[in-house]
């Protein structure tokens, strides 16, 4: 079994970080993981994306043509990647910035106003955590407990940020229900 998750959005939305959090959580649960960034010029201010591969066998190709799932944080990302997602995958659409849907009927679409939710817990910047939590709650690739643990580890150096991000996570999980 192998799942590939594409995270995509604008540079500065914290795309690479939520990819890393998912990879970390999957690793903690004993899966084989790989986090593959796009490190092209587009990462500087333009589109940022990364792919997280989670499997129970050693991971072969890190180049993924058709990911299983998509977390789209802006409209160009949805338009670019929704067509290549494998049927049956979860597609998270950041409703705060994307007024359209994926255009596919064979995907599990999950629309979440991530910015608005993040703003409601205290900081719009936590939209990425809201999105990740909602995606995890829907796809069930890892447990929410693992995710929580990894968020705490990630922000260990800035402990003031932990409560905010945990709150954002909890609201994200609720949004997926």
């Amino acid at each position: 079994m192998q799942n590939e998750v594409m995270f995509a959005g604008f540079g500065g939305q914290g795309i690479l970080l939520i990819g890393k959090l998912l990879a970390h959580a999957a690793m903690e649960e004993g899966y084989e993981v790989a986090w593959i960034p796009s490190y092209g010029p587009e990462m500087r201010g333009g589109t940022a994306y990364c792919t997280v591969v989670i499997g129970d066998q050693p991971i072969g190709s890190p180049i993924i043509k058709n990911p299983s799932h998509l977390v789209a944080m802006n409209r160009p990302s949805l338009e670019k990647f929704a067509p290549v997602i494998k049927p049956g995958g979860v597609v998270l659409i950041n409703l705060s910035l994307i007024p359209v849907d994926s255009g596919r009927s064979d995907l599990d679409e999950l629309k979440v106003p991530t910015q608005d939710i993040a703003a409601s817990v205290g900081n719009g910047k936590a939209a990425n955590i809201v999105a990740l939590a909602a995606f995890v709650a829907r796809s069930k690739l890892v447990s929410i407990d693992s995710l929580k643990h990894c968020i705490e580890v990630e922000f260990a150096a800035k402990p003031k940020l932990i409560p905010l991000n945990i709150k954002a996570m909890e609201e994200g999980v609720k949004a997926a229900l």
């Binding site: 890393k20 990879a23 690793m27 084989e32 993981v33 790989a34 986090w35 593959i36 960034p37 490190y39 991971i59 890190p62």
Partner: peptide
Amino acid sequence: DGLIGQMMEP
């Protein structure tokens, strides 16, 4: 190669 440098793995 660039991927070996940029990729994250356990």
